[in-house]
Amino acid sequence: MTLLRAEGLSKSFGKTQALDGAGISIRAGEVVAVMGPSGSGKSTLLHCIAGILPPDSGTVHYRDQDLTAMNDSTRSELRRTEFGFVFQFGQLVPELTCLENVALPLRLSGMKRKDAERAATDWLARLEVEDVAGQRPGETSGGQGQRVAVARALVTAPKVIFADEPTGALDSLNGERVMHLLTTAARETGAAVVLVTHEARVAAYSDREVVVRDGRSRDVEFAR
């Protein structure tokens, strides 16, 4: 089942055309790597299909809803309930403990503190970082911080996880561990993953790849 489908996306920043008619299609539960050289438009594509950035033209459909036609509050509600995000760094709230960070999305959805923290504790354990629960993000290693970020992305049981270079700041061993944990958890929960990376060994955790070049994407599935 196609979960997310973007067509004809264009986006310019001033004179720079970041996307030039890009398209992508994501099925439920699949892990798709978005690859391509630096500056080719990978992050811009990810931001557009995740409803973070409005494209200049083109459409983004999530199930039967058109993200580009929604008002802001409907779109951010959809992001909060259906999507999870993992970035290279800087996504955790520095003032909160790791446990509070993971519990935060649930708290924002109105869950009671105790329930939210119990769920957060479970996820920290699944990502093998239960021992940093009481620490603030600044007091963890890069690898631990990314696992906490993955736990936070997964705690709301999203249908799609958007990850932009989630292992970009980690060494090979930690990066691969994060990829293993992320993709294993996603497969267990049935979440799709859109994974932006320029590293082949990271992309090897995907089911297939979409290559972006000069703002255009080459998606074999999309062509079908």
Binding site: A200, A204, V211
Partner: peptide, 20 residues
């Protein structure tokens, strides 16, 4: 090059699964 990349990545996926 695209064809080769795709073949390389397929092999890398298989190795990654085997590694897991």
């Amino acid at each position: 090059l695209d064809t080769q990349r795709s073949a390389h990545l397929d092999t890398m996926r298989e190795l990654t699964r085997r590694k897991s």
